[in-house]
Amino acid sequence: MNRSELSSGRPAAPAVAHAPSRPVRTAILGVIGLVFAVPIVAMVEFTLRKGLGGGHDFSRWSALFAGGASGQYRPVLTALGNSVGLALGTVLIVLLLLVPTLLLVHLRFPRLRRLIEFVCILPISIPAIVLVVGLAPVYSVIAGIVGSGVWTLAFAYGITVLPFAYRAIQSNLDGVDVRTLSEAARTLGAGWGSVLLRVLVPNLRRGILAGAFIAIAVVLGEFTIASLLNRITLQTALVVVSKADPYTAVILSLLALGFAFVLLLVIGRLGAVRTRPARRPTPGGQP
């Protein structure tokens, strides 16, 4: 989708001087694809096993879909809902807090950049378990104020995704002349709101989307913090299920993978559609 758009709207990028040849590229892609595919294929194979005899069938899949949702696996569905909600909450925190902060630092307080970078990268060097030790008393306060709903985990996740989201957005920020673009927009009569929404966000779309993708991926895969703070998310629910029925747990993991994949695809699609330039109704444009 993106590729065809690029080739139609923009001139072809010049060939890199020492780009690997086509067979080499294919080989590299193949090896990497294999590394990713083996565990997934193994999972699929595992769920298709029939008893101890060595045959394969779909009995476990059909059993799950036949009556699973009615009672036994309901907690997993609830957990999935929790995780998706958390992912959205975390993305919101990143978009509403991190993006404006980085823009403000970039435009108004460039001296703070070092500090912001340090603060944003810091969480990556702190193990989740250490984070939880620090967060537990904080959450007892949070619980007292806004209750102990699952969504409050978004605060903690907002911190854990910070390093990844920061890198994604900052590198985009460095590649765009944000200062000149915003000054140009202001001289053309745009207030700060218009500068942000009509000029900066569209040009930082790539970084913002990448940051959002990473936030979603991290949240859907996070286990330690949720488990230690006793919140039910997809990962913690899967662990509970796997203790009772490993086959079903793997099936659900596969479904979760597929779900995350579709989610990212949808978000990518939404982002791509917005950049498509609006065409003028009159092609010649002569008034």
Partner: peptide
């Protein structure tokens, strides 16, 4: 402006 300032998008 001195630098190219067209909105790239």
């Amino acid at each position: 402006f001195q630098s190219y300032s067209l909105f790239p998008h």
